[in-house]
Design a protein around this nucleic acid. Sequence first.
DNA 1: ATGATCGTGACACCGAATGCCACGGGAAAG
DNA 2: CTTTCCCGTGGCATTCGGTGTCACGATCAT
Lengths: 202, 202
Amino acid sequence: MGRQPSGNGARRGRRPATSRAELERVAFDLFSTRGFDATTIDDIAAAANIGRRTFFRYFDSKNDVVWGNFTEQLESMRSRFAECPPEQPLMEAIRDVVVDFNRFDPAVVPWHRRRMELILRVPALQAHSTLRYADWRTVVAEFVARRLGVDSDALEPRAISHATLGVCIAAYEHWLIHPEAELGDVLHRMLTELASGFGARV
Amino acid sequence: MGRQPSGNGARRGRRPATSRAELERVAFDLFSTRGFDATTIDDIAAAANIGRRTFFRYFDSKNDVVWGNFTEQLESMRSRFAECPPEQPLMEAIRDVVVDFNRFDPAVVPWHRRRMELILRVPALQAHSTLRYADWRTVVAEFVARRLGVDSDALEPRAISHATLGVCIAAYEHWLIHPEAELGDVLHRMLTELASGFGARV
DNA sequence: ATGATCGTGACACCGAATGCCACGGGAAAG
DNA sequence: CTTTCCCGTGGCATTCGGTGTCACGATCAT
């Protein structure tokens, strides 16, 4: 909205009318009141004072709105993996990075909860999220592959990344149902169980 | 097509113009030649000599075509779980049932491969399949819950079912890339690794 | 024949998504 | 200041998936 100092200059044409973050806020408001499915893109565009066509220049689809800047965050997870000491056991390293990756400033936790409620409870988003999860798994698989000295699309790295993701989703679902639970604790617990093959169980 | 003996009678109105299985065959043919995305429902309906509206009386969506009669198959997996001897370790029981569930008559294996290629490689189907996977996981989670004496939507059953599914998908992806591999073997191997927490790895 | 039953398919409609293109705001070059 | 170029905007048309409505037609029971 307010004209930025444009970083170090070199801005040429017309200024963007809004931003991804702004659109996200507007859209989330509508999702909260009407629900995701009942909110049309026309609604979002109207509420943000942009044309419907312009919406699709900020997000590829309505589904993508709820994922914010996930791609950039993944990059930070990737570098976080790179910092893992080589002597740390594999599943332990994964556990620590994942728990770390899901640590949030308390101020944004309510927002994150709303985001995850949408992703994990709205069928259309449950479905679409699979495509985003793939990127997440790739980051994990790359790390595992490096550790095992195999290709990142080999069987083991893929299996481990799939299993890790599954456990994380279960932890998130639990966290949504039990707001009093600490997300990091739940993740830590279940990832530890995964590393033991759920061995404490019969 | 040929009029059936209608079981034991008591058929009333007009006879169905086709069947789910027939539509599946017609659709798969088109998917093979044009690809999934480039095949419209009008194409399928025209090829099957039915109206577009009628298509939606056989399948809820275009995506659902590739899943055939999955729901009924799930029922058989559920009863297969019920037959597990109580003394068998949990993860071992899951492994055996899942491997068993994915055993197919050699004659239908090529068909099954085409089906899974679609499900695991076409983005639209990757996304949609998440919703079907949920039913699959429920069956596993119910079994785990019974064994652990907890509710079937508790954390552990959900985590284990999620992790199991993940490993199975990885195994399937591997099987698609390596046609010479035996699906049952790959599944067995990875589910065993899961049960050990991928422990043989560093 | 008559009536109840049930699948069919035409029609209209909605919403997501995409291609096309003219418009307009804004910076740099003259 | 004017021209030039850049680039985001947004209107329009189109395609396609999916849904509600309703008249029609085929079939069986009486």
